[in-house]
Simulated assay, not measured.
Amino acid sequence: MVEGYPYGLGGWGVPAIFREGGRLFGRYIGLLSPFIFAFLLPTALIQLLELFGLAWWASGQSPFIPPGPHPHSFASKISVGLDGYNPPPPPPVTGRTILIMFAVGILMWLLASLAVASICKAVEYIYAEQEENPSVIKSIFSSLPGALFRLFVTSIWVLLLTLATIITVSLPFYLLALVFKQAPILALLQQVFLSVSLTILGFIFLLSQEVAVLEPAHYGLSALKKSAKLVQEKFLPALTLFALTILVGGLLSRLSTFIGASYFDSGKLPRWAVYVLAVIFAVLYLVFLVYVLLVTVVLYFSSKLKYDAEEGSLPEFLHSSNENPYAPLVVPAEN
């Protein structure tokens, strides 16, 4: 039998939730690895290719971006003379570049959504307290199309609310700019208010994907509302996870920038060292993605148990005694 909910999960705080994410990562790597290799590894490889793509761009060899020296490359510095550095503008954006960027964006969303859905389903199986199912991986893969649809609808609502927030926050500043034309402080205030508003929005919707995957009746706007309620239940753990994601993501971004700068300014590091750093970056990014996903799912279950206890209900999949969501898709023949 799979293990079921850890004792006291609904009352866990920050340290216990983060430890549980690491425990699941170590103990159930065999269950998680098919989804890591299928969805998260390609995401890390795309990030790795992006690093090498910048290097190709620097030498004018990129098959994706129009030829021309990168504004921070040696070639661009030499082209404007040795007595001063005034980098030229980047190459013009073409229709082909836009299409490729759009296609990569769609691919990244698809991979991220499938990763969220599969990891959620895997942790749900671990916490289901039912008989072990030898075909659980196959069952989870078969459930992904439905979860992907719910995630798509939820993402559309997130996009609409994000656009509405941007318009609502920016409009007063644009109107004030018409009156006070020589007031650069308005642009700064607009950026501050916009950043704060979007950060709050992202925090409130922190668990919306988990809700959309694990609660089929709640997706789209309903998932966003439910996420706000669950985040309230575990405000400090949710805030810690949100802040850690931003902090570590920022550090990885700095590492990516350092690797790119090391390639562009070839005097800093030999090429082989840059390749090693790029691979290390990809591995760190992969581990970071898996761990954050696991902690987020644990946070969801902890918040939901507390929320359901206050509402006097239990998680939906525990209600069903006659229906196992992980019933084997292939029944082995009897001897």
Rank of each mutant, 00 (worst) to 15 (best):
residue 133 N to K: 01
residue 249 G to R: 07
residue 185 I to Q: 11
residue 68 G to L: 10
residue 262 S to F: 05
residue 274 V to H: 00
residue 331 V to M: 13
residue 239 L to S: 13
residue 260 G to M: 09
residue 3 E to A: 06
residue 98 I to F: 08
residue 157 W to Y: 11
residue 72 H to K: 08
residue 275 Y to C: 09
residue 305 L to T: 07
residue 25 F to N: 00
residue 213 V to Y: 04
residue 158 V to N: 04
residue 110 L to T: 13
residue 253 S to F: 11
residue 178 L to Q: 13
residue 278 A to Y: 07
residue 226 K to T: 02
residue 79 S to T: 05
residue 286 L to D: 00
residue 187 A to V: 12
residue 186 L to A: 01
residue 260 G to W: 06
residue 84 G to W: 10
residue 230 L to K: 05
residue 96 R to H: 05
residue 230 L to F: 05
residue 282 A to G: 04
residue 20 E to W: 08
residue 37 F to W: 13
residue 184 P to R: 07
residue 293 L to Q: 12
residue 101 M to D: 10
residue 252 L to P: 01
residue 251 L to C: 01
residue 308 D to F: 10
residue 285 Y to C: 01
residue 56 W to I: 06
residue 317 F to T: 14
residue 225 K to S: 11
residue 305 L to K: 14
residue 333 A to L: 12
residue 225 K to R: 15
residue 94 T to M: 00
residue 242 F to H: 14
residue 219 Y to S: 08
residue 18 F to S: 01
residue 152 F to I: 05
residue 205 F to P: 00
residue 10 G to P: 00
residue 81 G to Y: 00
residue 229 K to I: 09
residue 108 M to R: 15
residue 224 L to D: 05
residue 35 F to K: 09
residue 313 S to P: 00
residue 4 G to R: 07
residue 21 G to D: 00
residue 221 L to Y: 14
residue 43 T to R: 13
residue 296 T to Y: 10
residue 10 G to Y: 03
residue 197 S to D: 01
residue 82 L to H: 12
residue 168 T to E: 05
residue 98 I to W: 07
residue 333 A to R: 11
residue 32 L to N: 00
residue 201 L to Q: 15
residue 193 F to V: 14
residue 163 L to P: 00
residue 153 V to P: 04
residue 132 E to H: 04
residue 244 L to A: 15
residue 163 L to R: 02
residue 330 V to M: 10
residue 164 A to H: 10
residue 46 I to R: 04
residue 45 L to I: 15
residue 121 K to Q: 13
residue 70 H to D: 12
residue 230 L to P: 06
residue 49 L to Q: 06
residue 195 S to I: 01
residue 265 D to M: 13
residue 156 I to D: 00
residue 53 G to L: 09
residue 278 A to E: 06
residue 302 S to T: 02
residue 168 T to M: 11
residue 166 I to A: 12
residue 287 V to Y: 06
residue 22 G to F: 14
residue 54 L to V: 12
residue 2 V to L: 01
residue 4 G to C: 07
residue 260 G to H: 06
residue 230 L to Y: 05
residue 296 T to E: 13
residue 234 K to P: 08
residue 115 A to N: 08
residue 273 A to D: 05
residue 88 P to A: 15
residue 306 K to C: 07
residue 73 S to Q: 03
residue 10 G to K: 03
residue 146 G to E: 11
residue 306 K to E: 11
residue 24 L to E: 02
residue 43 T to M: 13
residue 37 F to V: 15
residue 100 I to G: 01
residue 330 V to R: 10
residue 226 K to A: 01
residue 24 L to P: 02
residue 290 V to Y: 06
residue 58 A to C: 08
residue 271 R to Q: 13
residue 38 A to C: 01
